[in-house]
Amino acid sequence: MSSVVSDEVPPAPAVSDSRTLRRAIKDLRDGLADSELWLHLGWQDIKQRYRRSVLGPLWITIATGVTAVAMGLLYGELFGMDIKVFLPYVALGFIFWNFIQSSILDGAEIFSKNEGLIKQLPAPVSVHVYRVVWRQLIIFAHNVVIIVVIFLIFPPPLNWTVLLVIPAISLYVLNSLWVAIVFGILSTRFRDIGQLLTTVVQLVFFMTPIIWTTQSLGKTTGETSSRLKIVELNPMFHYLEIARGPLLGQSVEFYHWAIVLGCTAFGWLMAMVVMRNYRARVAYWV
């Protein structure tokens, strides 16, 4: 029997595109489109946390309100501040800081704490990212009640600049998304990142003007100016300024917005790199 040798070249093996920017963007789009799922999961997280509780999610408002008022009264007395000005300042600082802090810490654990759901539910990785951000928005909505009550008691000199809080909150959401992507995915591989973030966030809290003001840094103009430059090295200071300033009737310098926009752009650049390279490995790492 004569053997027939084929001159045809075998087709090249298919190359997986799981580690491409296109697949990373598709994951973000598909996850956003699956809003019914992450809206339900985020709300269930809140209900589960306060299950069998009489007041339920109202404990969010009570805990934040009591802490803000207690800290405002205490440090206002220590620093000799006008309570009508200082208490709204501290309350707003706590509310916005809680959003930032929870976004970082909860975002770092979003994948490792949902191992079973990730392995059993065929859904885009970004679904869990949107879930944790949606949960933070629900908590923030509960804390808005505190802002309303304090402003009824101590009305600030509001003007049209109060509308700037809308783009500020939008930037908070954008930053929460990239934080959950970067720290959430990397924490599934290196579990020490979560513990490190807890320590760093606690340290940054005391370095950020939340329970103290920049005016209390020095008694003379020169001292205040030099110490303020050190405070401005902390990005959290700028994040708080763009949201708290408009609600207190203060004008916010453009450089605060520029720094936040720069951090947002850099953060999303890191997020796309992490999504591109490690998104497909999350199910194996959790």
Rank of each mutant, 00 (worst) to 15 (best):
T220K: 00
L158T: 15
W212N: 10
L78W: 12
W257R: 05
L28K: 01
A68D: 09
K47Y: 04
F205W: 11
L233C: 09
V149P: 05
P235T: 12
V273E: 08
D34M: 10
L177E: 07
A68C: 07
G65T: 09
V274I: 10
E115S: 10
V85G: 09
V260D: 00
T161R: 10
I153D: 01
A108V: 09
L228R: 03
V286G: 12
N277A: 12
V260F: 07
S16F: 04
L164G: 01
I259M: 12
I100S: 01
L261W: 11
T199E: 06
A24I: 13
I62F: 06
F206S: 05
V90E: 01
R281N: 06
I118K: 02
Q120D: 13
A12K: 02
S251C: 00
R29P: 01
F254G: 12
P124D: 00
P246I: 05
T264K: 00
F266G: 15
V90A: 07
L28H: 00
M275V: 05
Y89E: 04
V162C: 07
P157Y: 10
L87I: 14
V69D: 03
L203R: 04
L73T: 07
R52W: 11
S102Y: 13
R23F: 03
W285E: 13
P155T: 11
I138V: 14
G249V: 09
